[in-house]
Amino acid sequence: MKVRAPEAPKSFPAFVLLAFAVLWMALVILLPLVNVLAEAFKQGVAPYLSSIVQPDALSAIRLTLLVAAIAVPLNAVFGIAAAWCFTRFDFPLKGLLLSILDLPFTISPVISGIVWVLLFGAHGWFGAFLQANDIKIIYALPGLVIATILVTLPFVARELIPLMQDQGTDEEIAAVTLGASGWDVFFRVTLPNIKWALTYGVLLCTARAMGEFGAVSVVSGHIRGLTNTLPLHIEVLYNEYDSVGAFAAATLLAGLALVTLVLKSLLEWRFADELAAHRRH
């Protein structure tokens, strides 16, 4: 099959389409990002810096990193296990399990938050038990972590499954006939073949884990200095009309998003063959 190569626009309609696309992307997508910087530095550099080093802001940064540091590795291990079991074996109800895996992508982040309140909140299924034993999940770190895990659960698995499906099992079976043990097969044959897709999935998972707002907002309780992640910190400041503070915090997350985009483009450009062909987010 022959595929058409892109060429410089020549006709009038081509220029119209190009102009529309560029303008639309600039106004709808790029402008909000530029606006973040403009608002953050509205009153100069000093207020910007001082609002970033506020104790509340620093503790929000620490909490955000901590939550991601717990949630992402768990989802990565799960993603590898799920991809292995979905692409290497056939078993009943596989389709059903796959749709369950996709659920966190389709349900609202708010729902991903309230389910935990319904389980562990004061009036939740285990609320009384938790209270009696003085265990705090909701409005505490564990709640933030499980809500983040739920929201970011499919990222790694969804990146690995199509790739491992594509790659097939030939190399792994060859390794078995050559006498490799299960872990040898995984670490010497499978992992090297999926490492860039895994990196890619972990990257997207991390970005989302750090930026998640809806789900953690439900379980956080917005306790300043204790359960506010960076996105929640932005909300609190914005609602208190501390625009510079809110946007200063927002620049950190926007920076994270840009770094993610750069790394993502880099991975896509450098390792196109080793990433899955079709992506969903």
């Binding site: 982040p109 930026g211 996105p231 997350l253 998003a257 993502k264």
Partner: peptide, 20 residues
Amino acid sequence: ALVDLPFALPTAVAGVSLCS
């Protein structure tokens, strides 16, 4: 690359920026 910005930009950031 810019197309993916809404995926990558945390929603709270987009929210406050769009609002302002």
